[in-house]
């Protein structure tokens, strides 16, 4: 017993999370005793689920402080095949790529972990991923449809929909985008995204995209080198932070907006959230550096820079190493 029954009880609570549900009701629908329900509710509470209980009313599911496979998969959309939940992985990107290499993936698949020991971002830079503070996940998008010039629409589009989802959950906070796909709050990075294309060797076609997202949700402090750059979205003790729901909504949103990335319809909103447009920037393009004023994000998601020599150029590459916000 135990495990399976507790999952069933959890699902019953989730289905009726908008109302009070009595122990009798759950016992009846699962064909077990009220005693069993009571025991399993206690078990669920011990595992970090917040469940209100009140005499004469019964139970009401609130949220969970821990990631939970049953809960996330309850919240996920049909377009997502499954969300695997891990306590600790080296990195969710590696996990996802390994999964892709060993399974037939026909539908979007995701993995989320409480902790990453080797979380990484662009060019192998490490992503600080302390236990139970952030949301660290990767999504496999199999057989993506796109054209070669739409790559920038995918990466900027994913950043935009993540920022929008943050807005839905934390409407009183202001999120900004730093080209290409950094998400900032109070000028500090709160989320980073890495996208890797997996190419089939024989056909040279794209087998899948693996999109990795690292979010500093409640991270209370950062290593010294990140202290001026990184920030957390909320304090750990703030009420109503349902990590499972936030994670599931992010995964749903990223997967379900594919067509919206490709048609670029989000770009006008992206521009409004851009922290770089109109600002002097330094752009590192491979080994070269350019300086100028960012004037626009064009229809391919490329950054348009008026260079110091007066030339106006669009860049489909590079990293903004400096942006002068006081301009």
């Amino acid at each position: 017993m135990g495990n399976k029954t507790s999952q069933k009880v959890l699902l019953e609570l989730l289905k009726d999370r908008d109302r009070w549900v009595s122990g009798n009701e759950i016992a009846d629908s699962l064909g077990v005793t009220r005693e069993t329900i009571w025991k399993n509710i206690n078990l669920l509470k011990k595992r970090g689920h917040q469940i209100q209980s009140q005499k004469n009313l019964g139970y009401k599911y609130e949220s969970s402080s821990k990631l939970d496979e049953v809960v996330i998969n309850f919240y996920k959309n049909k377009s997502v095949d499954h969300v695997a939940v891990e306590e600790q992985v080296d990195s969710t990107q590696m996990y996802a790529k390994n999964y892709l290499a060993t399974h037939q993936v026909e539908k979007a698949f995701a993995v989320i972990s409480e902790q990453q020991t080797q979380g990484y971002g662009r060019r192998g830079r490490s992503f600080y991923s302390p236990k139970e503070q952030g949301l660290y996940f990767s999504i496999v998008i199999p057989k993506p449809t796109f054209e070669i010039n739409q790559v920038g629409l995918i990466t900027t589009g994913v950043a935009y929909v993540i920022a929008q989802t943050f807005k839905d959950f934390f409407p009183e906070r202001e999120f900004k985008l730093k080209w290409v796909n950094d998400i900032l709050m109070n000028q500090r990075k709160v989320a980073g995204i890495i996208t890797e294309a997996i190419t089939e060797v024989e056909s040279a076609s794209t087998q899948a995209f693996v999109i990795g997202v690292g979010i500093n949700l409640t991270t209370p402090e950062f290593p010294e080198e990140l202290q001026q750059k990184a920030g957390a979205i909320v304090a750990k003790n703030e009420p109503n932070i349902d990590r499972n729901l936030i994670a599931a909504q992010l995964i749903n949103t990223i997967v379900d907006n594919w067509q919206n990335y490709l048609d670029g319809s989000f770009l006008s909103e992206y521009r409004k959230m851009s922290i770089v447009i109109g600002k002097p920037v330094t752009l590192q393009v491979g080994t070269k550096q350019v300086k100028g004023i960012a004037t626009d994000i064009n229809e391919y998601g490329n950054i348009v820079v008026k260079l110091d020599d007066g030339q106006v150029k669009a860049f489909n590459n590079g990293e903004i190493t400096k942006v002068n916000l006081d301009w």
């Binding site: 662009r122 060019r123 790559v151 920038g152 995918i154 890495i194 996208t195 890797e196 190419t199 489909n316």
Partner: peptide
């Protein structure tokens, strides 16, 4: 060997491994 990663190409923060044919 065929299929080995020989490099990475980055475009708009998208990384593509380049494999040997």
């Amino acid at each position: 060997s065929k299929g080995d990663t020989v490099g990475l190409i980055e475009a708009m923060k998208m990384f593509n491994e380049v494999h040997s044919p």
